[in-house]
Design a protein around this nucleic acid. Structure first.
Lengths: 213, 213
DNA sequence: CGTGCAGTACTGTACCGTCTAGTTCCGGGC
DNA sequence: GCCCGGAACTAGACGGTACAGTACTGCACG
């Protein structure tokens, strides 16, 4: 009967969640300055009083929403990386990993969030930091340790593993991600295209960091 | 005596320029929604009436400012690329090119502009398109033709020249650029660091696209 | 039955775009 | 060199709207 919404949740907690969900939608659509608290309250089907009961002010609600959303989005990405270091087929598994990460990063919601955070980075620098640290930086750190292990097994030739991880990451993601940042269009791009970017990125990566000839 | 301001300029043209310069500063600092026309007028030392004489409304002023700034910033980047195709030392010249482009893209003003355009891409998609087309896309297209020539000369091994240009571009720029996008900090990064990103990017690029062994 | 919430009015501020009234600039005729 | 007429500009008020955050009343849910 009840949607994804957990039923055994105090009324207050339910309201709080409704507010955060509404805030997400409106902030992502209209930006920080373009969003009004009235609109959020209306969309959450909640009185403004209640909004201010849960969140001190607009800024607090905004930062709460951003950090929360970053965490939700970042979580599933890291798990994938772990399994990489025990791979038997480096190329195939790298390609798989690349493709999956691309799929994650290019989800419409995450694209919108990235745009929002970048746009406000000058005014909310701490949000940019949160986004970077809990998102890409954490993933790349995990990747760097995996690369280190693969290097020890003789399957990769990496000097600076951090740099290699960054190169891998951006070889795969840069093209579609940067295009998406500048075009307002958030629809998921053609999967075949993403396949291609993943494969070509991995190819270039392995040419530079592959096992010694 | 007279500052960079050209003296032989009609009064109207002078005012117009003052308005655009003020708009640049305020928009870049406070974003579109966070900027008021009063503030621009005040900073330009001009009455609001005059602002509206020159620009129909806020949106018009904004788009005019963005397209103008994009053009100014993009121009010097393209010239560099041309000379590449006649190079004698591919690696050295690629590294040089990479380093110079990095220096261009990482200028504070251009970083702020990029953030602004990305942040508003959902609401002003045409601006994102302008930015992309007159900026990175044009540079990459020029690079692709240079690569084609270098391929013909046997100095590179490129199949898809467009893809190779994109890979080159992002191998060099992604790391510092994406960091800058998310940290609010626009100060030019350590030059030695940029040297390193240029060199390492070129190294990886040549491993994949270098002359046949 | 009492607390938490809806509904809504309210305060104070800010802003866009227009308007008015007075002032300065500037080129052309003498 | 001097003056005039019109265009451009200044300064600020103003209407209309929107918004952040507060206050208050009554209702219904737990």
């Amino acid at each position: 009967m009840s949607a994804p919404t957990a039923v055994d949740e105090t009324r207050a907690a339910r309201k709080r969640r409704a507010i955060l969900e509404a805030a997400a939608e409106v902030f992502l659509r209209n930006g920080y300055a373009g969003t009004s608290m009235d609109e959020i309250a209306a969309l959450a089907a909640v009185s403004k009083q209640t909004v201010y009961k849960h969140f001190a002010d607009k800024k607090t609600l905004f930062t709460e929403f951003v950090t929360r959303t970053v965490d939700e989005a970042a979580e599933p990405v890291h798990a994938e990386v772990e399994s990489l270091q025990d791979t038997g087929d480096v190329e195939a598994d790298l390609r798989d990993l690349a493709r999956r990460q691309l799929g994650m990063v290019m989800r419409p919601r995450l694209l919108q969030l990235r745009r929002l955070v970048i746009g406000e980075a000058g005014r909310f620098p701490e949000l940019g930091q949160v986004f970077a640290e809990r998102g890409p930086l954490r993933t790349m750190a995990a990747m760097a340790t995996a690369f280190e292990r693969l290097g020890a097994r003789g399957l990769l030739t990496v000097g600076d593993t951090e740099l290699a991880a960054a190169h891998f990451n951006w070889l795969v993601m840069s093209i579609p991600l940067n295009r998406a940042m500048l075009s307002g269009d958030d629809d998921a791009p053609d999967p075949a295209e993403l396949d291609r970017y993943a494969a070509e990125g991995v190819r270039v990566f392995l040419a530079a960091y592959g096992p010694p000839a």
